[in-house]
């Protein structure tokens, strides 16, 4: 299993790639994110560029998994944008309707562009990634146990 290597690789990507940290924050368990954020010692002042608002995103699929797009249905998303005192802009786009979660996500997004990035990465992002990977692996392990092993009965007809 190359799991640990993957973890390290995606952990490093998380430090560098705004796309990966924003994606992780969008799907993070809210209670876990709040706990980790509460344990982080800095909570900077900010002003809103866009106050948190809940809305819908139309989720699309493809015909036959591969063909032309179609509209599947909406999902709830909450977004906001803010600036820190030094002018750094942070965006929060998170699944669900929690304004508090969007605000934390936007602050982390902004601070990941400052010298707080290493601390945030270590104390918040890596634990969130590990929780997400653990959850995925636990389900995958249960699924694997329900994989069918076929065997063929030899019928004694001759």
């Amino acid at each position: 299993m190359t799991n640990e290597n993957d973890m390290t690789a995606s952990g490093a990507e998380l430090r560098q790639s705004r796309k990966s940290w924003m994606s992780l924050l969008a799907t993070a368990d809210e209670a876990r994110l709040r706990d980790l954020w509460a344990g982080f010692d800095r909570n900077p002042d900010h002003s809103w560029l866009r106050a948190p608002e809940a809305g819908g995103v139309m989720v699309r699929g493809r015909m036959g998994a591969a063909g032309a797009p179609f509209n599947l249905g909406e999902m709830t998303v909450t977004r906001c944008a803010l600036t820190l005192a030094d002018g750094t802009v942070g965006h929060g786009y998170v699944q669900g309707r929690s304004k508090a979660k969007a605000e934390i996500a936007a602050k982390i997004d902004a601070m990941m562009q400052t010298d707080a990035a290493d601390d945030l990465h270590r104390t918040i992002l890596v634990p969130l990634l590990k929780a997400k990977e653990d959850h995925r692996m636990q389900r995958a392990a249960k699924a694997a146990a329900t994989k069918v092993d076929f065997f063929t009965m030899v019928r004694g007809e001759d």
Binding site: E53, G56, V57, V59, R62, P69
Partner: peptide, 10 residues
Amino acid sequence: LPRFGASDPV
């Protein structure tokens, strides 16, 4: 709900 947009096809 205001519509923020459409996703990329999953």
